[in-house]
Write a protein that binds this DNA or RNA. Structure first.
Length: 417
DNA sequence: AGCGATGATTCCCG
DNA sequence: CGGGAATCATCGCT
């Protein structure tokens, strides 16, 4: 991390225009009072303190409001004050009201019944698979319908009250006109005052409806709240890719898609995983040593196996990477071949002589490491290609490594650079 | 309950 | 726009 960044973390500077624009894209509001500013500047739910806040009581979990929402809310509040102040003079189309109307329309609260379209859109936004939360979606729809009903009932009430009050005032003025002259302009002014008052009430109704929808969404669609660890097999696949590309653990879009497909997760989850993995590996290489050794051995064994198969004329020609045995797995863009999961690995014929294979690989792996154990703890496998990259893992790279070119038959099968 | 691991989110930078 | 870093919330084990 650069010095400037360190300084920025300590005292964050105002966000960039791009960030602000990004924030404003999220055209929703949330309950301001439920949030506070976290030490790092992000907005977070106050109920994290106890998790027994009002929301919990209503069956809602601790929801996090995105800073974007906070920013929008502030913006709206500011404009509301301005518009109320300015409303005495003229009546421009209120952007705040338009915004609320748009959101209510988009959410299917106002306007024609959408029949769950909103829920589907919300599901798409959350990137959720349709199968795993159908029940929750019906629940979501039911609650949205409830909000919709309340909104319409209240809106009707306000309109009725507005009309009644206007009629009442008109009658009063008419009565007064017997005793004093009342100009049509004065009547008009009174009516417009009443309408303004009621429209501000309406605005409040719309605002609270938006808030309710917002909370509902966070309740059902907050992915973080419903975090699940990836399956063992998925982690295995990701780790195999990571350690076999340790010199440059930056999968291409195609590789990410391939991994996502194999792991039954989304591409962004793959990106998250690699982002987290790179940072955590870099932070504590020693801790990941054992894991690295394991996957290095696996990769090397599979590579050896592939080589053996290639050298055998009976097997090699009719076995393209994508149509290989269930245990093998390849990426067309990298040419790497490695095992899919531990089970098939251990149960395969290769697994039978694993011990001896791994033992025989140790010198290769050590050679691949390029530098002694004393550099970073007791390492058996290390990022040989990291230095070639110049960015990845540049900090722990010892200067001596430059004199050790990558060994042939390296466990690191990365061929991308 | 405590705690480490882990997936997700947010910020900023290049 | 992708990545690094910090942080958060939840999981899963003890």
């Amino acid at each position: 991390m650069s010095i400037s960044r360190a300084v920025l973390v300590a005292g964050r500077r105002p966000c960039s225009l791009r960030t602000r624009r990004k924030r404003v894209q999220v055209d929703v509001q949330a309950l301001e009072s439920n949030y506070e500013t976290a030490p790092h500047g992000a907005t977070r739910c106050k109920c994290r303190q106890t998790c027994t806040c009002e929301l919990r009581k209503h069956g809602l979990n601790c929801h996090r409001m995105k800073p974007a929402l906070f920013s929008v809310l502030c913006e709206i509040k500011e404009k509301t004050v301005l518009s109320i102040r300015g409303s005495q003079e003229e009546e421009p189309p209120d952007p705040q009201l338009m915004r609320l109307d748009n959101m209510l329309l988009a959410e299917g609260v106002s306007g024609p019944e959408k029949g769950g379209g909103s829920a589907a859109a919300a599901a798409a936004a959350a990137g959720a698979s349709p199968s795993d939360n159908t029940i929750e979606h019906s629940d979501y729809r039911a609650k949205l319908t409830q909000i919709r009903q309340i909104y319409h009932t209240e809106l009707e009430k306000y309109e009725q009250a507005c009309n009644e009050f206007t009629t009442h005032v008109m009658n009063l003025l008419r009565e007064q006109s017997r005793t004093r002259p009342i100009s049509p302009k004065e009547i008009e002014r009174m009516v417009s005052i009443i309408h303004r008052k009621f429209s501000s009430i309406q605005m409040q109704l719309k605002q609270s409806t938006c808030e309710a929808v917002m909370i509902l969404r966070s309740r059902f669609l907050d992915a973080r709240r419903k975090r699940r660890n990836f399956s063992k097999q998925a982690t295995e696949i990701l780790n195999e890719y990571f350690y076999s590309h340790l010199s440059n653990p930056y999968p291409s879009e195609e590789a990410k898609e391939e991994l996502a497909k194999k792991c039954c997760i989304t591409v962004s989850q793959v990106s998250n995983w690699f982002g987290n993995k790179r940072i955590r590996y870099k932070k504590n290489i020693g801790k990941f040593q054992e894991e690295a050794n394991l996957y290095a051995a696996k990769t090397a064994v599979s590579a050896t196996n592939a080589t053996v198969q290639h050298s055998s004329p009976a097997n090699s020609p009719a076995t393209p990477p994508s149509a290989g045995p269930p245990g093998s797995y390849s990426f067309p863009n990298t040419g790497d071949i490695f095992l899919m999961n531990g089970d098939s690995f251990q149960n395969s014929q290769v697994g039978a002589n694993l011990q001896s294979q791994v033992a025989s690989l140790h010198p290769v792996i050590n050679q691949n490491a390029g530098y002694s154990d004393s550099v970073v703890g007791r390492r058996m496998y290390s990022p040989s290609g990291a230095q070639a990259n110049g960015r990845w893992l540049d900090a722990p790279t010892p200067p001596s490594i430059t004199s050790h070119p990558e060994a042939p038959g390296s466990a690191d099968s990365d061929t991308s650079n």
